[in-house]
Lab assay of single mutants.
Amino acid sequence: TFTSYQLEELEKVFQKTHYPDVYAREQLAMRTDLTEARVQVWFQNRRA
């Protein structure tokens, strides 16, 4: 599960791009204290 802060950050990036590159995902992962893999999976699920 994600915190409301994490979801907010993820959604913010999703609004800009549905396909963030690895750099964007790593920045987001650091900001949200998630792994890059978790961020990647979240985007895959969000796009589905």
Rank of each mutant, 00 (worst) to 15 (best):
T1M: 14
T1V: 11
T1A: 12
F2W: 08
F2N: 02
F2T: 03
T3G: 03
T3R: 04
T3D: 05
S4W: 11
S4R: 12
S4D: 09
S4F: 09
Y5K: 09
Y5W: 11
Y5C: 10
Q6F: 15
Q6M: 04
Q6E: 04
Q6W: 02
L7K: 05
L7A: 14
E8Y: 10
E9V: 06
E9P: 00
E9W: 06
L10E: 02
L10Q: 00
E11F: 03
E11K: 03
K12Q: 06
K12S: 07
K12L: 08
K12C: 07
V13G: 04
V13M: 14
V13P: 00
V13E: 10
V13A: 11
F14I: 15
F14D: 05
Q15N: 09
Q15C: 07
Q15I: 13
K16H: 10
K16E: 15
K16W: 11
K16Q: 13
T17C: 13
T17A: 05
T17M: 08
T17S: 11
T17I: 06
H18K: 10
H18V: 06
H18E: 08
H18D: 05
H18S: 08
H18M: 12
Y19D: 05
Y19W: 14
Y19N: 06
Y19T: 05
Y19L: 03
Y19F: 11
P20H: 03
P20L: 07
D21Y: 02
D21Q: 03
D21N: 10
D21W: 02
V22F: 14
Y23R: 13
Y23W: 12
Y23T: 11
A24T: 14
A24N: 06
A24D: 10
A24R: 04
R25K: 05
R25E: 03
R25W: 04
R25H: 03
R25C: 09
E26T: 12
Q27K: 08
L28T: 02
L28P: 00
L28N: 00
A29T: 05
A29S: 06
A29L: 05
A29E: 03
A29M: 09
M30F: 10
M30L: 13
R31D: 05
R31V: 10
R31S: 06
T32N: 03
T32F: 07
T32K: 00
D33V: 05
L34Y: 01
T35Q: 04
T35G: 04
E36C: 07
E36S: 07
E36H: 07
E36V: 13
A37L: 15
A37N: 08
A37P: 07
A37Y: 10
R38P: 01
V39Y: 01
V39H: 00
V39C: 03
V39I: 15
V39K: 01
Q40D: 15
Q40P: 01
Q40A: 15
Q40W: 10
Q40I: 11
Q40G: 09
V41N: 14
V41P: 01
V41Q: 15
V41F: 14
W42M: 13
W42P: 00
F43H: 00
F43S: 00
F43N: 00
F43T: 00
Q44W: 06
Q44P: 02
Q44M: 10
N45Q: 14
N45A: 12
R46N: 03
R46W: 02
R46M: 06
R46C: 05
R47H: 05
R47S: 04
A48F: 08
A48G: 10
A48E: 11
A48M: 12
